[in-house]
Amino acid sequence: MSDLLLRNEPDCAGFAGEGAGVAIRLAEPMARYSLRARDAQVLEDLIGLAVPRAIGATLGDMACLGPDGWLLCASVGTVLPSGSDLPVAITDVSERAVRLLVEGPRAGEVLMAGCPIDLDRFAVGRATRTVFETVEIVVWRLRDDAFAVEVWRSFAPWLRLALVHAAG
């Protein structure tokens, strides 16, 4: 990618209110791929990475979000083969979403302001597609007190504001 040009990120100023128990910030850019395959083994053979098999499971940078769907969120520069002629589909979606990091003892509580799933009982290392009110998100529990929230770019400012409101 050109060094001459500036990236432009959605308006998502960081938040770490005094005593709020939660901090919200935009993560650094990442490479993201949507991976689809009828047979996970074919995918593994192609990309040379282990692929989690159960929906909701993660393995390294890869989350299994559906019976034939995975999301890879890796460092910028990660390039996957195209998988031509194989029964797989690999699509670069690096810029489709951004990642909000929600961290702190109140992280789960703040997310549950608009996310209807029980994040108290959502184990570290799990990831799932769900919603925050009307906006689709992917929630990925990184640590006990840290969640990554993947959200499509144009929804990010709204989601960030909603989370800050909830943290208020």
Binding site: I55, L65, G66, P67, G69, T128, R129, T130
Partner: peptide, 11 residues
Amino acid sequence: ERWRHIHGCGR
């Protein structure tokens, strides 16, 4: 009837 887990696994 049919449903779709549209904001989940997509199926």
